[in-house]
Amino acid sequence: MIAFDYHAPESLQEAVRLLDQFAGTARVVAGGTDLMVTCRLRGLGPQHVISLRRVENLDVVRRDEATGRVRIGAFATLRQIERSPLLRERCAGLVEAAHKVGSIPVRNLATIGGNLCNASPSAETAPPLLAAAATVTLTGPGGQRAIPLEQFFLGPGKTALQPNEVLTEVSLLADGAGAASMYERQCIRRFKDIALVGVGARLALDGAGRCQAVGLALGAVAPTPLPVPAAADLLLGQQLSDARIAEVAAAARAAAKPITDIRASAEYRSAMVEVLTIRVLRALREALRN
């Protein structure tokens, strides 16, 4: 049995105050699809659970006209993300990743903030966000700070959040004007499964078809979702030839540090990094040609 005190503050300020008050013994809950499962499996949970359900405007999705980036409130559900016309047009990789999480009932509850704060190495939304140079906004008693997403993940289940901070917003580069993004994964079961390997990529081409910005990140092959800039940089200024794509994929594979567990062997995961990277980059080439 799990028992805890449940708090449902109406403002972010109040949520942060409660977190500060119960520092170390409280967890924030959004959809609860990870937190409650973990509590049940381990048979114990935090003493205090602070729900963000009653805090308004934490799920806003909008395009920042000044920077061209897309901003997503941390409380936006994965279902909301996969159905958002703006995101479908501007963040195809993230939409695809959100779409692949669990089932529709799970996605109706699960939020992007929760997916990131759970800090699973296989978190679906992480690779496309890392590939799109995402930053996260963390709100604490002293105000807000924004950090690059790659600095947010510290290890399985570990993040850069202070005990009295809440992740409130995610911002990422948008597709369009010669840029596109994509996410692919490999599972044991084709649907409703956890990624054995995930690959997110974002490419921006110049007028001559050369890569001018490249983001590439992997899921489930390291203790954290893993950006692989060295592999991505091999494409800078280059045409997307099959040979070049293969080289990038081999570099991504070399950068991955997979383990063997009950889901898959390290050998298979490594091979799939290469297979999926090729698949994603070729698909992006195709998408950007049209």
């Binding site: 044991i188 079961r189 084709r190 649907f191 409703k192 499964d193 009950i262």
Partner: peptide, 28 residues
């Protein structure tokens, strides 16, 4: 055929849940 198996390590069941014990869904 494709995915179901109870995985034991030293007599302990490693996947006692429908997350890691994969049954086909309507989608497959």
């Amino acid at each position: 055929a494709f995915s179901e198996q109870l995985v034991f390590q030293q007599g302990r069941l490693m996947n006692p849940n429908f997350l890691d014990y994969r049954m086909p869904t309507a989608l497959e």
